[in-house]
């Protein structure tokens, strides 16, 4: 019972912050509430018995990706107009498509699945560890390579071309 209560609190928190991310007109507010969503998802991982995933969710998403997004927001917006600049397209068709998708998904979930618990008691972390150096070692190594390439690639892409001098905030050629 207590578990269910905790779960619903976490679910409400996650969905609430996700709503703010999706609907807010202020991009800074969006970014910070995405932080909340990510933490909420990490908590859900924890509740489902996936401790390791909860930890890497916090470390990589909250620690890494969020910082990147915040930097991007700050670098691409001048500080003075921090309050505006999250213009949207017309909301109606987007909302219609999203609701349609949601409907189909919910139908599938509630009528297509056996009601079963999603919690697992087994200790997943040692299994993941073994799998990473055992059956999945090739993808593991390959993803290391991908990360390296992404790192170098993003440095190359984001590098300021030396040929033209730009002052801070100036974006003209």
């Amino acid at each position: 019972m207590a578990e269910a209560v905790v779960f619903y609190i976490i679910a409400a928190f996650t969905i609430g912050t996700a709503c703010v991310t999706a609907f807010s007109g202020n991009i800074i507010r969006s970014a910070f509430s995405l932080l909340g969503t990510l933490v909420g998802v990490a908590a859900m991982f924890g509740m489902m018995g996936a401790d390791f995933l909860a930890v890497i969710q916090v470390m990589i998403y909250v620690g890494g990706v969020m910082v990147l997004i915040l930097f991007a927001v700050m670098l691409t917006h001048r500080i003075k107009d921090v309050n505006v600049s999250n213009r949207s397209l017309p909301a109606f068709p987007g909302a219609a498509v999203a609701v349609l998708v949601l409907g189909v998904l919910l139908y599938g979930i509630w009528y297509g699945l056996p009601g079963d618990t999603a919690r697992v008691e087994a200790k997943m972390t040692p299994l993941i560890g073994k799998a990473l150096v055992g059956s999945h070692v090739l993808p593991f190594l390959a993803s290391g390579l991908v990360l390296l390439i992404a790192l170098i690639g993003s440095v190359v892409i984001a590098r300021r071309e030396e040929t033209f001098v730009c002052g801070p905030g100036e974006a003209k050629r």
């Binding site: 068709p93 987007g94 498509v97 999203a98 349609l100 998708v101 189909v104």
Partner: peptide
Amino acid sequence: YLYVMAGGAV
């Protein structure tokens, strides 16, 4: 493109 994709999937 996303409209078409999501709509098509549904």
